[in-house]
Design a protein around this nucleic acid. Structure first.
Length: 289
DNA sequence: CAAACGTGGCT
DNA sequence: TAGCCAAGTTT
């Protein structure tokens, strides 16, 4: 048994029952799920995805609404630029591809908010093509099980794609299922902090387990602070804008954070990013775009 | 290419 | 409790 076949057998029994994995899930619904899942846990994506698909079942429906509606619906999934880009993505799909999510890797990659991982995920999971789909879960799992390394590097490299491609079965549908299985094992078993090797389907051949499961040495990533950062302040301002049906006064925004310099910088950044804009014809007020 | 970019739950 | 972590993309 190859690692892929073993993973697929495990996946057949242990895969989570997620709506975007249903056989009738549309390419658009899969694309939306992939974007929402960028840096956001499944449990928080689930309700947001249902609301999103109920309101905008096809790209053209989303493109027909203003981007601010996407930002509102995004709620607190985090990184609201993803909502903005998903709206831009829907618009591009309508303009470039007649409203149909393209099935070509290069065309997918050219869409706003769609990078190396997501383009491959859509081509693979929505269209059944044979591509390596390499996210943080897969990189960690393959690093450990195949290379014996406790952790993968900070970003996906071409070498990662080659290494994962080598593990895939020839038949596209099987390859797609193998990628989903790798991701699931990485998410549920081969986790970053406390891997559950006792429940792992490939533990008997795992290179990392064979070497005694050494954990990574030094601090592998820089501290990820949030409290008091510009990100924090931007988040506070966006929460106010999201929740308001009417233009929000600068005075109201001033209440979210005491430091005026930082507050001003955060608001200016949001305007620059297209997440907020001055209310037309109403000085000192802001609205979603 | 390193840094910026939200948010909340878990250990 | 403070820090770590979660299906990345863009500049």
């Amino acid at each position: 048994m190859t690692i892929a076949e073993t993973a697929i057998d495990w996946f057949d029994l242990n895969a989570r029952d997620l709506p975007w994995r249903e056989p009738d899930a549309s390419p658009w619904s899969i694309l939306v799920s992939e974007v929402m899942l960028q840096q956001t846990p499944v449990v928080r994506v689930l309700p947001a995805w249902r609301n999103w698909m109920a309101r905008w079942p096809v790209p053209a429906a989303l493109a027909a609404d203003p981007p601010g509606e996407a930002i509102r619906m995004w709620d607190r999934l985090g990184y609201p630029r993803r909502a903005l880009r998903l709206h831009a993505c829907a618009t591009a799909i309508v303009e470039r591809h007649g409203g149909e999510v393209p099935d070509d890797l290069e065309l997918l990659l050219a869409l706003p908010g769609i990078g190396v991982y997501t383009s491959r995920a859509v081509a693979t999971f929505a269209y059944g093509q044979r591509h390596p789909v390499v996210d943080t879960n897969v990189r960690r799992f393959v690093s450990r099980a195949v290379a014996g390394e406790p952790d993968a590097g900070p970003a996906t490299t071409p070498a990662d794609l080659v290494a994962c491609e080598a593990l895939l079965p020839d038949e596209p549908a099987r390859a797609a299922r193998a990628s989903a299985a790798f991701m699931e094992i990485g998410a549920l078993i081969c986790t970053a902090r406390s891997p559950r090797c006792a429940a792992c389907p490939v533990v008997s051949t795992c290179a990392w387990k064979a070497t005694g499961r050494p954990m990574p040495e030094g601090p592998t990533r820089r501290p990820q602070k949030y409290a008091g950062t510009d990100r924090h302040v931007r988040g506070l301002i966006m929460a106010v804008l999201r929740q308001s049906d009417v233009p929000v006064s600068r005075h109201r925004i001033d209440l979210v954070w005491p430091d005026e310099v930082q507050r001003t910088r955060a608001l200016a950044g949001l305007v620059t990013d297209g997440l907020a804009q001055p209310a037309p014809g109403l000085p000192e007020h802001y609205v979603l775009p």
